[in-house]
Design a protein around this nucleic acid. Structure first.
Lengths: 196, 196
DNA sequence: CACGCTATTGCACCCAGTGCAATAGCGTGC
DNA sequence: GCACGCTATTGCACTGGGTGCAATAGCGTG
């Protein structure tokens, strides 16, 4: 049973982790994900290949770790929203945390281009966002009226919101990052919720 | 540039493909995806490991090829729907093709359990369904009122519908396959579209 | 300063995936 | 029936991701 890490160790570990991820992403963006070996990443970071696996489960994680963190951020923000707020409003408010993340639009664009340019990264991306559902759904469920299918409903709403964000993101990239992401998100949400 | 395959060759190829996939899935379900090597699959199918790669791009595809076919089936059904039908109604009708597929509920359950039990398969599953968007969205777009964001809207609707199907699928598994999948799908769609 | 814990590393290994070149097998034209 | 050509199959060698293990280095604490 692993002892609780001392805050110091835990802290340095997370700093190292994000440094490694940044190094890796720069390399991936420069040379392509498949054309970059873990040996090269390790060399660029000044550590051994073996040690990379102490920080990341696999090569994909090197590129995608930030997505998990974003999910955690959004979930944390979602948990802070007033309990009686409409679930769609709460979700939208929570998504705003994405605009506060320390990342230039160029860096964001580069990152997403990297994601979309590789099959296994796209797959990993899709899966990470699917994991977001598991975080969001429990926070949404209490906001729904009582029903014997409330769990399913909460999961559907979480998934749909994430999906709208994803569609908005794709469109945002297609437009070269020149528009407001949340505007596109609103358009997407209206599209699915408007009566037809 | 690849010449058009003779129908005969093409046909035998697709038969062999599905035989191989079935063999592989049985093995995966029995021993677990990660604990099954491609050597074992090849041996069970009576061919060489190398030849497996003539039929499938990678190990994942061995397990997931049926998903691509399902996507094609749904898209084909969607294309047949009357042009003036509401897009949600058309999608729902298209999804009904899933119930006509030759697969026992037990087999379906086993397959989905396999999917959900492994990270890379879950990721591949998510990605395949994301590819469904690319198939469905162009068929949905003409059904929407004119707008400068119709492409985004169509993608959002396609993605949301797929997501509802996915949520319904998970719930269906959770309930042991004892309910009607489309009922759950309807519940999910109502959940996201109902005004709050 | 010495001890203990953990991070780091090297090494040997397994397996997925690929390029290449040899071969086997099938269908076609003669 | 026979020889030719095309493609599928296969073996082989190799790259690179990922893991288990055991030795070592380095940091924090008493």
């Amino acid at each position: 049973m692993p002892q609780k890490l001392t805050p110091l160790r835990e802290q340095t570990r997370s700093v190292v982790r994000s440094l490694l991820a940044r190094t890796a992403i720069d390399l991936f963006a420069a040379k392509g994900f498949d054309n970059t070996t873990l040996d090269e990443v390790a060399a660029a970071a000044g550590i051994s290949r073996r040690t990379l696996f102490n920080y990341f489960r696999n090569k994909e994680d090197l590129a995608l770790s930030s997505l998990s963190e974003q999910g955690d951020l959004i979930a944390a923000r979602l948990a802070e929203r007033p309990a009686d707020e409409d679930c769609w409003a709460a979700l939208r408010a929570a998504f705003q945390v994405l605009e506060e993340i320390d990342m230039t639009p160029e860096g964001r664009l580069e990152f997403i281009t990297l994601l979309f340019g590789n099959d296994s990264l796209r797959a990993g991306h899709a899966e990470k966002q699917a994991r977001w559902q598991d975080l969001f759904a429990p926070l949404i469920e209490p906001r729904l009226p009582a029903s014997d299918r409330r769990t399913l409903q909460a999961r559907a709403i979480a998934a749909a919101a994430i999906t709208c964000l994803q569609a908005a993101n794709e469109e945002w990239v297609r437009l070269g990052g020149k528009v407001d992401l949340l505007d596109l998100y609103d358009t997407a949400v209206q599209a699915i919720r408007r009566p037809t």
